[in-house]
């Protein structure tokens, strides 16, 4: 369950508060829900995803993720909460000095999973995104699409309760995009709450679903 109650966000700029990027957001996404996150560039989609990933905390209002009131929780518990949220970044955010395998293994290792289990899960996941032969490649040796698939694998390998994706198909061809949507839908069917931000109208039309539409940091449509 994701619950926002009059949530606002402005980044700090110098000594004072910067412009408000999200304003008065109030909505609820039930557990196992699926939402497209739509809106023009600069509408605040990435900021909302950062907020839901706890990379930033709301500057006003109340945010509750997986029944945890974020504003009333300590640092340690926020870190544990992040382990239950998978995120696919638009710019992938892979660690350049680690191999594809080690990048995908990172969430499992941080969670302290036994190495044998890590090996099995990561290998399976990378095979699924068709990178089974590039386990030892570093991000710089991979194409944009391949890096995106590593980022997806890293986001879902820990079976997160919430999956956030920022333009996850931006570097993928149609076939790969369809495969990715199948993965997201399958995870959603198994109970993961999924939010996908995209500009790809064709993708949205092929996979109709409920959507959140942002404009100028405000929610203009929530169906």
């Amino acid at each position: 369950m994701i619950r926002l109650d009059a949530v606002g966000l402005h980044y700090v700029q110098g000594a004072g508060p910067g412009p408000e990027v999200l304003r008065d957001l109030t909505f609820v996404i039930p557990e196992g829900g699926f939402r497209w996150l739509l809106g023009p560039s600069g509408a605040g989609k990435s900021s909302l995803l950062r907020l839901l990933h706890l990379a930033v905390l709301p500057t006003s209002g109340r945010l509750s993720l997986l029944d945890v009131d974020v504003g009333a929780t300590g640092r340690h518990n926020l870190a544990l909460l992040r382990r239950r949220i998978g995120m696919v970044f638009q710019d992938f955010r892979l660690l350049p000095h680690l191999t594809a395998f080690d990048n995908v293994a990172l969430p499992l290792r941080l969670a302290g999973q036994p190495e044998a289990q890590v090996r099995a899960h990561v290998t399976e996941m990378l095979h699924w995104v068709q990178l089974g032969r590039k386990l030892e490649a570093r991000p710089a040796q991979l194409s944009g699409g391949e890096q995106q698939r590593v980022a997806v694998a890293r986001a879902v390998v820990g079976r997160p309760h919430i999956l956030l994706a920022d333009e996850p198909t931006g570097n993928l061809d149609e076939v790969q995009s369809e495969r990715l949507m199948l993965l997201f839908k399958e995870m959603n069917r198994l109970g993961t709450t999924v939010i996908v931000a995209t500009h790809n109208e064709a993708l949205v039309q092929r996979h109709p679903g409920q959507s959140l539409r942002l404009e100028h940091g405000r929610l203009v449509d929530h169906d």
Binding site: L95, L106, A111
Partner: peptide, 16 residues
């Protein structure tokens, strides 16, 4: 900084 932010985002505690 980038690497720390990524690892932090994946749920690494301050202690780790």
């Amino acid at each position: 900084r980038d690497a720390i932010e990524i690892v932090h985002g994946l749920g690494a505690t301050d202690g780790i």
